[in-house]
Design a protein around this nucleic acid. Structure first.
Lengths: 211, 211, 211, 211
DNA sequence: AATGAATGAGGGTTCATTCAT
DNA sequence: TATGAATGAACCCTCATTCAT
């Protein structure tokens, strides 16, 4: 992710009889792994734990993933917004940006949405600094998000009466991502932080960014 | 830390002959550990690896630390600005804030200053979501930083001709921390990010924050 | 045990297909552990050694026991006569007591019956003075044995024409246990001790005890 | 020991200026070791612990003992009655035997006399079954005790009006040792055992032995 | 004579991975 | 497809022993 995390995900469910089951099993494993990773971190979560959470045997996992590393990478991939970042494309006004951020913030605070977990974002980013393959996944997603986000910023700026070059918009997108990921850090370090109090300030900052 | 990491640290070096050696050994271990943690993460780095990096036997480490956990905590503690956050107290103008951020950003990019490592900040924060003791260390430092940072924001705002209540300043401090930590994320995810291009934008945002 | 060690034990072997294998593995581990403990003592025997003796990998042991301590305790438990001390209940005459003692003595001398090993009794008793949990196991078995042994003493005494209160019988039981455990010490310290020569004397002592 | 433990020990204290200090250091180490062994067993007590108890550095111990094993052996040696077993030679009547046993029993119960510790006797005996050198020490002491004890039994028997061959007396000595060591077991396993209640019974048994 | 820092082998234990079933 | 028993390398940590001082 970056400024936005995945929301749709499946689509296929009872469709193809061929690899349908395999896909479902993979998803089951990834769901379990995600929960475990959030609870204990990539290294702290054991295959046995993941298997138990997925209610299957450890051996079976290896039919769908060659190694624990692959699960980590798949989780990272899945955790980041997939193909095209439709969420970004739906952002049209300054308020949309702010709303989206606050929404993420709230979900992080509640810690109930495994696919939007703040600690996981941090762990994943830290891991990217060590694992080239993960870095590549993260960066490629970031690039995609950044592209759509830049366009969205252009849109929202125009709405505010400002015209931004794509390059200028891109820089703003970077700052927005900073704010977004910074919030993820804050929410972990200070879970009692008030979203309501923060909102007007964020709105002000974003407005400044658009002008 | 958060919005600032330690910079001074030593001072005593060849002073007391008594515990001097012990202190030096502890530092040697922590230095090695820090490098290893950056390279492989808290859990990925083994005591053997740390020992080898510190050029000592694994057993010796246990003369200075009771357990690996203690090293992690010491690293976290050391990595965060200690007692009173003097760096924050030196921030007086809007430009100071911006300069400090860019400076951190550059040091993160260069990756040559182990005590100012972006990935470590992320890992440490992620770990705080799982280890209560680390969370406490992080939060207590954050509280101290936040206090001094709020006052600094008040100062800088007054300089800009704005008067802020302590509460209002505190909220601004939170946003500044978000930007700061968000930059740490960005620098890991996109090491080629240009500081120079970012600076005017950051200045603008901070200005908005102060007004 | 004390005045008597377990003799029956199994019964189920090829019974339940469910936990049958697990039970067999546990037994295999305990058998190996017992041999190792006899050879090297509780602390001198390493898990690796036990695993090698059981012809399995060290890791596998932990599927059946959570820790080495648990094995020690299981060994202690298994080594002591279980539930009700049926052996004691079969003692009816003075000669039975003497016979039982000599039989134990002989088995100790031969050192071929791991479940009746003199050195293990001593080690186990010494360990009980340091490990509260082991002490509890030992004492609870001792209590059970003592109860049945007291009744047996009453029986045997009546056979000799003496009527003993339960309390009086209990004291005699204690002395019998002393003799029994004292023999275990002797057999270790002086393996060449002649059972045949000892027997008449023991008989005489026991007779005095019953009168 | 066996039927009796050492009581005298020193004699030399400020005598020879030559090896006097060395002897005192050895004694200091052995005193500390004994306490540690009682607390934690031969294997559970570490050299560091012994050194700390002796208030010296671990390194210094190795000036007086080549290895931990040697300390164990020295402790075993010291714990057993030295030179001729004078205690045995002072036993003249049936009552003397009983008194001596009860006295040992009481000291064991109090656990305050490090040189008369029941658990240590057991541990030491168990160790003898594994360490040939310790076995030899134990056996040679046992032989010495047994000799003196046999004579003492003859003496006491004559007092009772019975004449015993040395061989017959020797067998009685063995049984007395069994009772003695058996009491050591009992005292560990059941510390609440009443000495007073046991005494008449022991007296009766010993009387039977002498007749 | 004495210290205690330093070593490194080996301890108990975990866990990613494999494999017979 | 699925299990879960089994492996063994590697983990954290301890401790007998050595050695520079």
């Amino acid at each position: 992710m970056s400024f936005g995390t995945r929301q749709a995900q499946q689509g296929a469910r009872a469709a193809q009889p061929a690899h349908a089951r395999a896909e479902r099993q993979r998803a089951r494993i990834l769901d379990a792994a995600e929960r475990c990773f959030i609870e204990r971190g990539f290294h702290g979560a054991s295959m046995a734990h993941i298997a138990a959470t997925a209610r299957m045997s450890p051996g079976l996992i290896y039919r769908y993933f060659n190694a624990k590393n692959e699960i980590v990478r798949a989780i990272v991939e899945r955790h980041l917004e997939t193909d095209g970042c439709p969420a970004m494309q739906r952002l049209n006004t300054r308020e949309d940006f702010c709303a989206r951020m606050m929404e993420a913030f709230e979900r992080w605070r509640r810690r109930d949405n495994p696919s939007m977990n703040a600690a996981l974002i941090l762990e994943l980013t830290a891991e990217a600094s060590r694992d080239a393959e993960i870095l590549e996944i993260v960066r490629s997603k970031d690039r995609a998000v950044s592209k759509d986000l830049s366009v969205a910023v252009q849109r929202a700026a125009r709405e505010e009466g400002t015209s931004l070059s794509l390059e200028a918009a891109h820089l703003r997108a970077v700052v927005l991502q900073c704010l977004f990921e910074g919030l993820a850090c804050r929410v972990v370090r200070n879970p009692s932080l008030s979203a309501a109090a923060l909102r007007p300030l964020l709105d002000k900052v974003i407005a400044a960014l658009m002008s």
